[in-house]
Every structure is written in C-alpha cells, then in structure tokens.
C-alpha cells in the first residue's frame, strides 16, 4: 500500500461537499480519511450520524487515542484540535485557536505530514479563510500529494485560492473529479 491516509480541510459551504464525498466512495475504498470541518464549538454530532447513514464507509467522530483504520472517515470533534501520533493514533488538544479555528486544518495537516510524510494526500475544499494553507505547504514539503478543489467550483473560493497561491498543487479539480481521482489512486494503491 502506498498512500496511508487522506486528510481533508473544509470550511464554509463544506456540509454539501462532505455529503457528496462520503456518499460517493465505495465500501472497498481502502485509504482512511481524516477530516477537519470548521463548525461552531457547540455543534453536536447529529450531522455525522446522517453522513454515516448515507455512506458505505464508517463515518465517525474521532475518539481520543483511537487507531487509524481503513474503511473509516474520521471527523474532528468541535472545539478540539486533532493531531496524529507516530503510532497512527489520534490525539486531541484544546490549545489556542489557529486561524480563529479549533479544530484547525493546519494543525491536522502539519501533524499528519510529520507522520505519513510522502504517503499522505492532502485535500483543501471550499472555505472562506486561509486555514489549511500552511498545512498543505507542509504536506508538499514532505512529498505528499496536494489536491485542491477548483475555486470556480467551490461554494467559497477563498480557501482553495489561498492554498493554490502558496504551493504548486498536484491537482486542481472539481469535487466530482477529485472523487474519480481518489478512486483511481485507491485502485493502484492495493
């Protein structure tokens, strides 16, 4: 197996994108997916159950110290930063907000890059701030694959644009094309 994980950062306009993504991936998709979605600190996890019902994969909120496993789509809990340990388990912290956000995409991406190095795929989707940009820089620095949602197809173009301005992305694609690409990668990955 080549790619070991996919990290995704998404902010405003993200709910629709996540619904589409989680309902489009097939049951045999073998790369674990880890998502930071910006939400209010008091939001509950109801929407995660809804995503899970509509997905062939297991969509769940991260539990502290849980081991990353294939077949899962993990979502960072509100009001905690999500990080990955060398033994591929999750840590949560309540450090200060980063880019006004907790969870912050940068925090997840940076720690994931340290662990998975060039075996990581980073995806920046719709959003109206620049969280994720430093993270995707780090992922590229370690040789990972950077996929950015085509800003013209994103509900909010700011976040993908900010990422594109900072790195040379490997792919700039619509959500549909991103999913096609992931399926192709997953196929080769086995």
């Amino acid at each position: 197996m080549y790619y070991e994980a996919i990290v995704i950062g998404v902010s405003s306009g993200g709910m629709k994108a996540l619904k589409f993504l989680s309902s489009s991936l097939p049951i045999h998709f073998s790369i674990p997916i880890i998502i930071v979605q910006h939400l209010s600190s008091k939001s509950d996890s109801h929407w995660i159950h809804l995503l899970n019902e509509k997905s062939q994969l297991n969509v769940k909120e991260v539990d502290e110290k849980e081991k990353i496993t294939k077949g899962y789509i993990y979502i960072a809990p509100p009001n905690y930063h999500l990080m990955i340990e060398k033994d591929q388990t999750f840590s949560l912290t309540i450090d200060e907000r980063v880019n006004f956000a907790r969870p912050s995409i940068d925090v997840l991406f940076e720690s994931a890059a340290e662990v998975f190095k060039n075996k990581l795929i980073g995806i920046v989707l719709t959003g109206s701030n620049s969280d994720g940009t430093n993270g995707i820089i780090r992922i590229k620095k370690y040789g990972g694959l950077a996929i950015i949602q085509d800003p013209t197809t994103a509900e909010s173009e700011y976040m993908p644009k900010s990422a594109i301005a900072a790195i040379i992305p490997d792919h700039v694609l619509s959500l549909e094309k991103i999913i096609e690409l992931l399926l192709k990668i997953d196929h080769k990955n086995k």
Partner: peptide, 8 residues
C-alpha cells in the same frame, strides 16, 4: 506526554 503535542 503526547508526542504530537510536544513536537508542535
């Protein structure tokens, strides 16, 4: 302590 936390 959590290594990821300390490193960060």
């Amino acid at each position: 302590y959590s290594q990821a936390h300390i490193r960060r």
